[in-house]
């Protein structure tokens, strides 16, 4: 039986958590087609047509919205994010990202992706890695040298992550947490309209995690960027996200009103 993603079928949005604080509930109220950054319609994801990992009847993510996806390991959360990023073709259905229907891709620089294992260039410096993000937004495809603007945004993002003293260090010499901050800085330097983050807060201590999460949430609020994050920790997801969807085998209701059940299950 294919796994289903439960989502907006439930008409009652989960109650805003007073402790959440970071998300902007007003953004949840925004409606209208132009606000939709990601729209999945009847999409099946996976790598084998005969064995789809999950089916998503409908999912809309709006500007400035932070959506967390939770669920057990191996259920297809990363594949869903990769499908939205255009790295994996959907097995069926329509996907619209930043106003562009798949298989066409969003305009260069509009989509920032933080893979679960970060995808940093180990032998290159922090600056080089972060510059790759800002290059996508502020340089042309044939620009051999990065523009001044791209370099400035890269520096800003590095400072935002508190890594200015490591700017010229190669990635392989950084700790796991620092590397995670570099990957986040790379995406923030890109100034994207949509951020896809695959467990980007794991392996971080409380203080750093809060700093990194705040940076992303602030960016989302200031720029109206949508954020899709995969998060195993339900309470952490609730503190950051405006909305939580859970991928399961169809037996669980995913909404936060049933968080207790989910916590037991997951």
């Amino acid at each position: 039986m294919p796994i289903r993603l439960w989502h907006e079928q439930n008409k009652t949005p989960f109650p805003p958590d007073p402790n959440r604080g970071l998300g902007d509930p007003k953004l949840m109220a925004t409606t209208g087609a132009s606000d939709v950054v990601v729209h999945l319609d009847g999409v099946a994801i996976g790598y084998d047509k005969n064995k789809p990992l999950a089916e998503i009847p409908s999912l809309k993510i709006k500007n400035g919205e932070i959506l967390a996806i939770a669920g057990p390991s191996g259920i297809g959360k990363s594949t869903l994010v990769k499908t939205i990023a255009g790295l994996v073709r959907p097995l069926a259905g329509d996907i619209e990202v930043c106003g562009v229907m798949a298989p066409r891709r969003p305009v260069r620089g509009q989509l920032g992706y933080i893979p679960q294992r970060l995808g940093l260039i180990r032998h290159a410096s922090v600056f080089h890695n972060v510059l790759i993000g800002s290059r996508a937004k502020f340089c042309g495809p044939l620009d051999f040298f990065a523009s001044k603007q791209a370099k400035e945004w890269a520096k800003k993002a590095i400072e935002q992550m508190g890594l200015e003293h490591k700017t010229w260090e190669p990635i392989r010499r950084l700790s796991g947490g620092e590397q995670r901050r570099v990957a986040t800085a790379r995406t923030l330097a890109q100034r994207p309209k949509l951020i896809l983050a695959d467990e980007f807060l794991s392996e971080l201590d409380e203080e750093t995690m809060s700093k990194v999460a705040n940076s992303v949430v602030e960016y989302s609020q200031q720029e109206g960027a949508a954020v899709v994050l995969i998060e195993h920790d339900i309470s952490r997801a609730r503190s950051i996200a405006d909305r939580l969807v859970v991928m399961d085998d169809g037996r669980l209701n995913p909404f936060l009103s049933e968080t207790k059940t989910l916590e037991v299950k997951l």
Binding site: R108, H128, G133, R135
Partner: peptide, 21 residues
Amino acid sequence: SSLPLEAAEAAGLGRIEKTIN
């Protein structure tokens, strides 16, 4: 690793840029 390439591909970097950078 394919991951740096995937991150760059998602961002919209072209083939030549991915190769050089």
